[in-house]
Amino acid sequence: MTWKQMFTSSVGKKLIMGFTGIFLILFLIIHVALNACIWANDGGKMFTQGAHFMGSTVVPRILEIGLFAGFILHVIQGIMLEIDNRKARGKVQYAVNFGNKGSKWYSRSMGLLGTIILLFLIMHIYHFWLPNRANQGFLLGEEIDLYATMKETFSNLWIVILYVLGCISLGYHLAHGFQSAFRTMGVHNKRYLSMVTTIGYAFSIIVPLAFALMPISFYLGWIQ
């Protein structure tokens, strides 16, 4: 048994999806918590402090590399699994599908939801991360005013709508992904499974809702 054999089997590939999925869930907690500082409604003072810490301290910048690696691994492994699974299903499709009687639609649409989230992420990085890092240079240089950038970006209704759609996709992706990741990691004790399922649904509603409320708050002028 080599490590390669372990992580390239059908179960091993899912383990990679589960590991990276949980890692990305942890990232979401940090991201949403820091961004929630905008609701201090102090003209972005608290938020800017938090963003400055994340952007100009060595440790978060090193962790950032791990974050990108996690994203890339999750995306590539996900695409490979989707290809494998379609091949396993074969060319001839059923005339009548089991559909929603057997499973929830979003559990069968993780690839589609993931693709929407990826497209959203490209736009999101282009809006904030890229201009900020470009301004900083390669290392820990001067940051841009991210609060002002948010305010300006979210004054456009279309961008706000795209962000909200991205958050809805994230919510459904998490509604299945959260508990599925733990199942894949081998959580089979009934008490833990029901706990993970409940926390997963709560997480998939609360976190994307908080994210979606950020552009909405700026657009509707709830925060100045």
Binding site: S10, V11, K13, K14, L81, D84, N85, K87, A88, R89, F98, K101, G102, S103, K104, S107, R108, M110, H176, Q179, S180, R183, T184
Partner: peptide, 14 residues
């Protein structure tokens, strides 16, 4: 050549 499990639950339902 079987696929991977994505925990959809269709198997259990049938």
């Amino acid at each position: 050549g079987f696929g991977s499990c994505t925990n959809t639950g269709a198997c259990e339902a049938t």
